[in-house]
C-alpha cells in the first residue's frame, strides 16, 4: 500500500514538472505564431470586377487599365475572360491613348482557376492583353507567362505571341 502511494507521489511530481515544461514551451510557441500570423492573414483574392486595376502586358502602349465591365460572369471576370477597360496610364505615342475604352483578355489572375483536370492554377498578378472587338490583339508582343486555357477561348494568336505557356 505504502509503496504504491510512494510511486503515485513520484509520478505526480513528474507529471507536474512535465506540465510546467509543456506550458513554458506552449507560451513560446504562441508567441512565435503571433509573429508569423501576418503571413497567414493574406488578402483574399477575388474576381476581376469593376474598378480592378490591371497591368497591360503587351506593346499596345497602355500601361495600366481599369476594368469597367466584365463581359461574362455575374461576379466578374476570371482567368481567360474578356473585359472592357478604360486606359488609365499610357505611354506617349502608343496605339491606344489614355482615357480610351478598350477590350482586353485576362491572361494572368491572382485568383485561382480550376483546370480541366480538376487541379488549380494561379498567378502572381492581374494582367491583361488588349484586343479589338473581334478578339485580335492590338499589340504585337506578349510578355510573361500565359495559361494554355486561352486556346479553349479561341485566343490562339495571344498564345503564339507569348514567351511562356503555363
Amino acid at each position: 500500500m505504502a509503496a504504491s502511494f510512494a510511486s503515485k507521489w513520484f509520478l505526480a511530481g513528474r507529471s507536474l514538472l512535465g506540465a510546467l515544461r509543456n506550458n513554458s514551451l506552449g507560451l513560446l510557441r504562441t508567441s512565435q505564431e503571433m509573429t508569423c500570423s501576418d503571413f497567414l492573414s493574406q488578402q483574399q483574392r477575388t474576381f476581376i470586377q469593376m474598378r480592378t486595376n490591371l497591368k497591360v502586358v503587351d506593346n499596345s502602349g497602355a500601361k495600366r487599365v481599369m476594368c469597367i465591365q466584365a463581359l461574362k460572369g455575374k461576379k466578374g471576370a476570371r482567368l481567360g475572360d474578356t473585359i472592357i477597360a478604360s486606359v488609365k496610364e499610357a505611354q506617349p505615342g502608343g496605339k491606344v491613348k489614355k482615357g480610351s475604352v478598350v477590350y482586353g483578355v485576362v491572361v494572368r489572375a491572382a485568383m485561382q482557376r480550376g483546370r480541366c483536370d480538376g487541379s488549380e492554377v494561379k498567378f502572381d498578378d492581374n494582367a491583361v492583353v488588349l484586343v479589338n472587338k473581334q478578339g485580335e490583339p492590338i499589340g504585337t508582343r506578349v510578355f510573361g507567362p500565359v495559361p494554355h486555357e486561352l486556346r479553349k477561348k479561341k485566343h490562339v494568336k495571344i498564345l503564339s505571341l507569348a514567351e511562356h505557356i503555363a
Binding site: Q112, K122, D124, P145
Partner: peptide
C-alpha cells in the same frame, strides 16, 4: 502529384510551383 490534384502557382518569371495539397501551398505562402 496525381492528375487533378493540388494547385500550381506560376510566378511572373514563368517558374511553376506545384503543390500536392493546401498544406504545402500554405507553408509556401508562409
Amino acid at each position: 502529384i496525381y492528375p487533378g490534384h493540388g494547385i500550381q502557382f506560376v510566378r511572373n518569371d514563368a517558374k511553376i510551383f506545384r503543390f500536392c495539397r493546401s498544406k504545402c501551398h500554405k507553408n509556401f505562402k508562409m
